[in-house]
Nucleic acid binder design. Structure first.
Lengths: 337, 337
DNA sequence: ATGAAAGCGCTAACAC
DNA sequence: GTGTTAGCGCTTTCAT
């Protein structure tokens, strides 16, 4: 294992001091052109790659952002990974990946954040989840710049990117209420991109405005596991009157509901209309194709990274909680929308 | 922003030298119990977190493994991320995430590896892809321990985890050939977990053994984009005789084919049998449910990390290319399997 | 415009 | 057992 070439080697090769080499690689413009060229050439000749670790120690910055993922989210966020990855690369930040598991028992968010702190990441990206509050407390305590995806929050050290979940719920419910339909079922499934509690609030609000109430028994909470969800829905349909409209927290569960309807001979969209969320491949695969709330996933990831870097560079931040625009993509599972 | 507490602070607080503190946090067993306790207490009192960056500089190790992902893979590997994440955590390695895009043009693997080298990761995990050879050349050149997922390779500095794609192709084809069916179509789609070229080889081999040849026009290459694939298949069915068996490189494409059949009134599995790969949620969502080749995704991720750490610690490695067992999960899209 | 030297926070010889 | 000290590879004053 041949030793890595260091800044000293380059300095010697170019016959300058290491300070000058440092200046060149950091783009300082005080270096004379001739000298700079000589250094650049030496760098090339020796295939020198500055050691980020040493640089990190010297500057007390790691140019690293930690991304903490609920493991389950991967299936639905490939585009977001794209946004995060591309932006990190563009801004020259490394991304360290931390996973938390579904239930958060064996590897709670708090432990993960401890790790992040030890790693000296400059900032961290968190996803909306049950235990995010505890996480935010910790990042505040460590003064760790934080971006939250999927939930509106802000603080001294935290920014967020989210979609207006309340409006989604409100608009959807109001649309049907206006048409005299109040027979709505809300399928709550674990979801880290849309704050389902707010969405629930929105539905309730629309009902109140219409002089009605959205009862708690119009909410069904289910598993993220397809067959399990499918089962739950089949049971539901067996034991309840078929609702007229289903608002599902995530496309996958919407598809499960569609299939349960299919099994029971409930026709979509004539007997029942259903709306999914996220607008993932599941929405397109479904038969009938799913009407779904589209989220600007890629951009949300990109914005999250950008916000963190702004906090790090103490750039002006006009909005610490950025609301991204969602759109409802109408397909074949609705007709009165 | 209050300054982080360092090993010096702890040393002072505990009234020992920093060397002793270092010994304590590194679990050296030469420290007297009383001293150790005093140090431990000071660490707790000051909430000291050793700086991994400084440690990395001092040891010339980053205890970091870089994971390079084709961005597209995320949707299908959440379990693998689980395996990688859990194992990394257990072994106390950080994981740095690098994404490459679909086409590899704007962010070629080579550039990513340059970044990895700069970051001083101890090792790197790569996925099977078109341009992996160039990547391996580079990691060899930099003497960077590498684990490849999804393709059999090995070298001085590289290990791999893979499934026997050739056997998958061979077994599947042979099964039908033995039953007198040679009307097989192979759907090739981009896939980073199974080496589709080897799979193709396997099919060919079974044909040769049966005294036949598997013609090149029995292979259809398609997009990873669902609607596009669906379209391609619809066109195919319109312009060709309907095959008896379809082997699809990935479940999503298999589902697209199923729907194309559905549109044309081709009955599955009576008229046409179809087999998917990976055994993802798509296989279960499909109607009829898809027979699919199941991969031990989580374990593949875990093994990849473990192999790298073995290389790093110069542990004995009995097998540098580990073949994982796949299984065929029979569901409703086949009947003669 | 360039060099010398003092850190950044930690590990690991080497002393005692 | 514990302390002293020399690095690890780089950035950044401060001189020159």
């Amino acid at each position: 294992m041949k030793k890595k070439t260091t800044i000293y080697d380059v300095a010697e090769e170019a016959d300058v001091s290491l300070a000058t080499v440092s200046r060149v690689i950091n783009g300082s413009n005080v270096v004379k052109k001739a000298t700079r060229d000589r250094v650049l050439e030496a760098i090339k000749r020796l295939d020198f790659k500055p050691n980020q670790v040493a640089r990190g120690l010297a500057t007390s910055k790691s140019t690293t952002i930690a991304v903490v993922f609920p493991q389950s989210i991967f299936a639905r966020v490939k585009d977001m990974i794209g946004g995060i990855g591309d932006t990190g690369r563009t801004l020259d930040y490394s991304l360290t990946m931390y996973t938390t598991d579904e239930l958060g028992d064996s590897n709670p968010l708090e432990d993960v954040i401890e790790r992040v702190v030890k790693s000296r990441a400059d900032g961290v990206i968190l996803f909306n989840s049950q235990d995010i509050e505890k996480g935010l407390e910790l990042t505040k305590q460590y003064n760790l710049p934080t971006a939250v995806i999927g939930q509106k929050t802000s603080d001294d050290n935290v920014c967020s990117v989210y979609v207006d979940a309340k409006a989604i719920g409100y608009d959807l419910a109001k649309n049907y209420l206006d048409k005299g339909i109040d027979d709505i079922l809300f399928v709550k499934a674990r979801q880290n991109l849309i704050d389902l509690n707010s969405l629930h609030e929105g539905i309730k609000e629309a009902f109140v405005e219409a002089g009605k109430t959205f009862e708690d028994d119009r909410v069904i909470t289910t598993s993220n596991e397809f067959e399990q969800a499918h089962n739950d829905f089949a049971n539901y349909l067996d034991s309840h009157q078929t609702p007229r409209v289903v608002i599902a927290g995530y496309d996958k569960e919407a598809v499960a509901f569609v299939q349960a309807c299919d099994d029971k001979g409930v026709h979509i969209p004539d007997d029942l209309e259903i709306i999914g969320m996220v607008d993932s491949t599941y929405a397109i695969i479904s038969r009938p194709k799913l009407t779904s709330v589209h989220l600007p996933i890629y951009d949300m990831g990109a914005v999250a990274v950008r916000m963190i870097t702004k906090m790090l560079n103490e750039e002006e931040i006009d909005e610490r909680a950025v609301c991204m625009k969602h759109t409802v993509v109408k397909r074949d599972s609705t007709k009165l929308l």
